[in-house]
Design a protein around this nucleic acid. Structure first.
Lengths: 114, 114
DNA sequence: TAAGTTATCAACCACTTGGTTGAGAAAGGG
DNA sequence: CCCTTTCTCAACCAAGTGGTTGATAACTTA
């Protein structure tokens, strides 16, 4: 289940270790060993996390001798931001409409009052 | 694993059915049965999805007789947007710095050229 | 060429997840 | 007071996830 890219991106960022990796990659590229250093898990586990990030399109890897520098592809963030902003805006515009209705009711109250 | 709210929010939105529910709730509140109607799964499955969304703080439920109207809490989106924007900006500012360096190199090339 | 470094693949395991069905709580309508 | 409607809880199951260890690929260096 969940084969679309948006699902893969959300799913990838649901893990704190992977979010931390992304955070560190935002500051610059790193090799797999460098990335693994702060975490108390095997290199293989980190390699697996990177595959999830790669499958989501969040990172790419190139080659430098034995090393595989990992690079953050920040454009993928736009996918999420677009989805989020669309529905946030929709929900907020409903609030504004509701506010308008409530304001109108207040006006009516004032008119009725004296 | 993954107990923080940000993880729960990303994880909740990783499922297409739950994202669709959120999308529909952006247009207005719905009861559980209403929400369940378009999907080819049991009401219990939908109830479970709603619990995940509730645990993430994305929705709240009130009571109206037997019904439990579900309401979208769009402010939680800010949590994600803040996280995303922070690292996107960081990554982009690196690009700008790199661009500046490359521009400077171009300038030097021009100076060296004649 | 042999040895060392860097990273992935494969098999395995405990735990979680999304689905099912069945039972039951909570409220309203006859 | 039953009966219906609306929803959740509980137990179960297949598939997925994050971790492990061991083997191996790919490349550099002595």
């Amino acid at each position: 289940m969940a084969h679309d890219q948006l699902s893969r991106v959300f799913s990838a960022l649901a893990d704190p270790t992977r979010r931390d990796m992304v955070a560190r990659l935002a500051a610059g590229d790193h090799t797999v060993t460098e990335l693994a250093e702060p975490y108390d898990v095997s290199l293989q586990a980190v390699s697996k996390h990177l595959r999830v990030l790669r499958d989501a399109g969040l990172v790419t890897t190139t080659r430098d001798a034995q090393r595989r520098p990992v690079h953050l592809e920040a454009e993928v963030f736009d996918l999420m931001t677009k989805w989020i902003e669309r529905y946030r805006r929709e929900a907020e515009s409903r609030f504004r409409r509701l506010d308008a209705v409530l304001d109108a009711m207040d006006d009516n109250d004032e008119e009725d009052a004296p």
